[in-house]
Amino acid sequence: MSIALMKDDLAVVFGEDVAFGGVFRCTMGLAEEFGRERVFNTPLTEQGIAGFGIGLASMGHTAIAEIQFADYIFPAFDQIVNEAAKHRFRSGSQFDVGSLTIRCPTMSVGHGGLYHSQSPEGFFLGASGLKVVIPRSPIQAKGLLLGAIRDPNPVIFMEPKILYRSAVEQVPMDDYEIPLGKAETLTRGSDLTVLTWGTPVYHCETALHMLSSPPESLAKHIPASVRSAKVELIDLRTILPWDVETVTESVRRTGRLVIVHEASRTGGVGGEIAAEIQNRCFLKLNAPVKRVTGWDTPVPMQYEKFYIPDALRILDAMVETLNY
């Protein structure tokens, strides 16, 4: 954000408490560096923030808004879906809000419960005109955020909140962008594709490791035949529009797909991807597309760790899919 503010005089950052760093300290020091005219607090007004950002962006400003938690994006849903997403189409390209980026912390935090641990990315799937991005690490976050800010379409940028504290990387100081709409293959494989985004990327990596070298307590559940399976792990990164080509190409090679996301299963992004992949890869599939997701309940405070798809559930799904 500092780079965006430095290189673009029309860039402004605003949201609840962002002037003194925000609840997750993402905007620390920005107000001091760039002034309170460009980095400022808003009232607790999500719908207003979104609408305000849309107005600002339609004047050509680079509007970088923050909704304090993705859980609070619902009051702004109307502005985002009905205004931001449709602005370009309904004006025949005379107006657009392409320079609008809405950042919001998403996914579980371990103890967030109903209103601080949700993953609402799936609700935006039907909003053509919008892009939805979820990074998995600090390096990814910087590159994708700069990509999102400069992308000429409105972008919802959801940052997995548990990673604010747990993910550590040496992030290059330079200005760099990671293109939107492109998934990244993290490990190559030939027997099974695991597709995920955000926090569960790490649970998937753990599960992959458990599969090839299971700890003793699990060994009896992991047949020797699947331990040598070569699993391909893909981070989808952009949820809307999602990278169909990369996933299709992968599943055509592996014949198996497990999708992992934290949002609940019904109406989740996994359902959309599963439907599209079985449509495109029907004759190549050796097993049904498997989804490992949150349950169809609100995120429970006390049982959050049972709600989110952890490494064990992912491992179980991989074994089942490989043995199908």
Binding site: Q47, G48, A50, G51, F52, G53, I54, G55, L56, A57, S58, M59, G60, H61, A63, D78, Q79, N82, E83
Partner: peptide, 12 residues
């Protein structure tokens, strides 16, 4: 919906 958008325009 146009009212907060108007506030954003005025800010710009």
């Amino acid at each position: 919906a146009q009212v907060p958008v108007g506030a954003g325009i005025a800010f710009a």
